[in-house]
């Protein structure tokens, strides 16, 4: 770990300050959890509704530490060949072919040991994240999309930072990656996975923090309008909607309002732009009814 890197993770305040510096506004809870994850060398399991900045957190950490971000997007049917490593069959075959032509008696022994070496290994994200001498940030995105059985693939990497390849042996991490798993909580994750992580729930931000996020992300937004927007969005999240507006949607809304030249929230403007914020007609109707 380089000197500058460890100084970013030296204290909770340093983490908070650092993340702010790379355009991510952390709450105190986020900063504390990131700090702890580093201290305890544990992955962070980030859970929460869509659009609250889960993936963004991983990106921000990679920017903060100037580390490469290795991303594994999960989906139903993900397997070890796509997540960890794969043998490069074609290259192995070529190697065998070329040995055949060389008419060397001892070639078999050579080839046998030879084709199961690092040269013929295709690194997939999990293996890539722990190999190489420079530490990385590993993002396992939407881990709840894989089946429970597939979760087991991650366990070895997550708890021991190593990968075992039967033909090859165990590859230990040359450098400790910082690991972030995200989940939209569409299903319960297995106990085994949860136990290995520390937990962070990213819900909707407080009014204050959302206002700050808006002012940071939307150039030209006045403090007063940002406050109104965050208050109104907070109100919408309180009524029972099918899909509450996320932070990214409130940013979009702020951008829309700015481009329409709004300086304050008023009835007509809100009614005509609600579709940026809410994605279901039923929700829009409900919100409009409250403006009666």
């Amino acid at each position: 770990m380089s000197i500058s890197e460890s100084s970013y993770l030296a204290s909770i305040d340093a983490v908070e300050e650092g993340l702010r510096g790379v355009d991510y506004l952390p709450s105190r809870e986020i900063a504390t959890t990131v700090f702890l994850a580093n201290r305890l060398a544990k992955p962070i399991l980030v859970e929460g509704p869509a659009g609250t900045g889960k993936t963004e957190l991983a990106k921000a950490i990679s920017r903060l530490l100037s580390r490469e971000l290795v991303r594994l997007q999960c989906y139903e049917g993900l397997d070890d060949a796509k997540a960890i490593y794969e043998w490069n069959y074609s290259k192995q075959l070529l190697r065998i072919q070329s040995a055949k032509n060389s008419d060397d008696d001892s070639s078999w022994n050579g080839v046998r040991g030879d084709i199961f070496t690092a040269e013929f290994l295709l690194e997939r994200p999990l293996l890539h994240a722990i190999s190489g001498s420079d530490p990385k940030v590993l993002l396992v995105d939407e881990v709840d999309r894989v089946e429970v059985e597939t979760e087991a693939l991650f366990l070895e990497v997550l708890s021991d930072f190593q990968v075992t390849i039967p033909e090859f042996g165990t590859i230990k991490a040359a450098s400790m990656p910082m690991v972030i798993l995200t989940s939209n909580n569409t299903r319960e994750l297995s106990e085994a996975l949860k136990r290995r992580c520390i937990f962070l729930y990213l819900g909707y931000p407080s009014r204050e923090r959302e206002k700050d996020i808006l002012t940071m992300k939307v150039p030209g937004l006045t403090e007063a309008l940002a406050k109104e927007i965050s208050d109104y969005v907070a109100f919408l999240r309180g009524i029972d909607l099918k899909k509450a507006p996320s932070v990214s949607e409130s940013i979009d809304w702020a951008l829309t309002l700015i481009s329409l030249g709004a300086s304050t929230l008023e009835n007509e403007m809100v009614r005509s732009t609600l579709n940026v914020l809410l994605k279901y007609q039923g929700d829009i109707d409900k919100a409009i009814a409250k403006l009666a």
């Binding site: 702890l36 319960e188 949860k194 136990r195 520390i198 937990f199 729930y201």
Partner: peptide, 21 residues
Amino acid sequence: ISPLDREQLRVALFATMVKSE
């Protein structure tokens, strides 16, 4: 952490002991 800071202590314990919102 500094456990005498009550909110820090809360986050630290929540992050490590509780795995569900």
